[in-house]
Design a binder for these strands. Structure first.
Lengths: 218, 218
DNA sequence: ACAAATATTTAGTTTTGTCTAAAAATTAAT
DNA sequence: ATTAATTTTTAGACAAAACTAAATATTTGT
């Protein structure tokens, strides 16, 4: 697979959300920052190669083989993201562009050893699950912290209320996007939560927990 | 710079040994596993871009700018080699192909952080020096172990005598290509050497030391 | 110095991935 | 249901990087 082919495969995968959903030529063109006519050419080629199923005017979807390739790319992308954050001190919002390049490096041993070096992580710095070597993996869902059951853990990926006071509160309590949070217990009385974050356990109000999004892999 | 341009720059650099030596079209074609006519096209382009100095029929050399690019590529290549060996348990003879891909990844922060992560190494697993960020670096020379002065350290890169008995001896004494060896002392009487290898000090005969090549950065 | 051998360049194609403009198919609207 | 709007495809071109074959330069040998 060439660089460009791999990029198309990933785009089809992401737009189709993994299933054999069919993706439109225009959507793909927008995602790839290219023109629909270029997309038509490429999906014809991918189809001939057995990577995609393409019916003129009816959109394109990945074949089983194509999905395997997509999952391998996603695996590599996310492993490299973990590497960049855990080993090279990148912040979670700096990694994407570099991982986008690194995911195309071809070496099975490299990926296997990288996985081992990182301690076989199962989610990337954005809380998205890392497919196994065989391509198995869980789906991630985004939920408000308040909505998840006790025992759940996930990555903090966003805020509902982005007002200055709330952000200031988070900062003061050292809660940042990208942090892994586990719900330890709930207080029946006021709906407040005991959460584990960066090895420490803290107590946050129901209101706080209602404004933090967690990405969890179900 | 495109992938291909970067590969040509590296090839010109390596054939020209860094100086502003002029490299012939044919030599470059052989190195790049391509045809002379393709080389002519490319060196014209590199010349127009200010990367190389090209006079028809007179060969090509790197401009100062081109040499800077070459050194940056060599730096990245060698840092990745260290990474593969030190962190991912690759053996010294497996790293080249993968490093050849990794050296093209574009991210200044990535290289800086990788350097730091590896503890600012100054040679790669083959004993070749790693250029600094500014492009400064020492030359490596290959010498017989017996020829280097006391105190010198380098990487074991080859044998002069490749007979089975000698190789068996090396194996028994856990001396392998890629090992770092330091000359601790010499015995005046018989010219034998005390060397440090893998944290241990061992004593080897003059004859052994006369058949081991060391790469040292002078 | 001149012919032969070698090295290099030019000219014309090919492939990959892109583009624009025009044509055709599909979908939406009255 | 027929026209209008949108989407998609086709046709023809282009740039990058390679190739083959032919034409020039240069170097070598006598």
């Amino acid at each position: 697979m060439t660089l460009s082919e791999e990029d198309y495969i990933k785009a089809i995968y992401h737009l189709g959300k993994g299933e054999n959903t069919t993706v439109s030529t225009n959507a793909l063109a927008e995602q790839m920052h290219t023109k629909p006519s270029s997309v038509t050419d490429m999906i014809k080629k991918l189809s001939e190669k057995g990577v995609a199923n393409y019916k003129p005017y009816k959109g394109v979807s990945l074949s089983e083989y194509g999905e395997k390739i997509a999952l391998s790319l996603v695996r590599k992308h996310r492993l490299w993201e973990v590497f960049l954050v855990d080993k090279l001190d990148f912040s979670w919002d700096e990694v994407h562009e570099v991982a986008e390049q690194l995911e195309h490096i071809k070496s099975e041993k490299l990926v296997d050893q990288l996985d081992k070096h990182l301690g076989y992580p199962d989610v990337d710095p954005h809380g998205d699950p890392i497919p196994s070597k065989k391509g198995e993996f869980k789906k991630a869902i985004k939920k408000l912290l308040i909505e998840v059951p006790i025992g759940t853990s996930g990555v903090c990926v966003g805020v509902k209320d982005s007002s200055a006071p709330f952000l200031k509160f988070l900062d003061k309590n050292k809660i940042a996007l990208g942090d892994t949070i586990a719900v330890v217990d709930k207080e029946e009385f006021d709906g407040s939560l005991y959460i584990q974050i960066k090895q420490k356990e803290i107590h946050i109000s129901n209101q706080i927990a209602s404004n933090l999004y967690l990405k969890i892999t179900a």
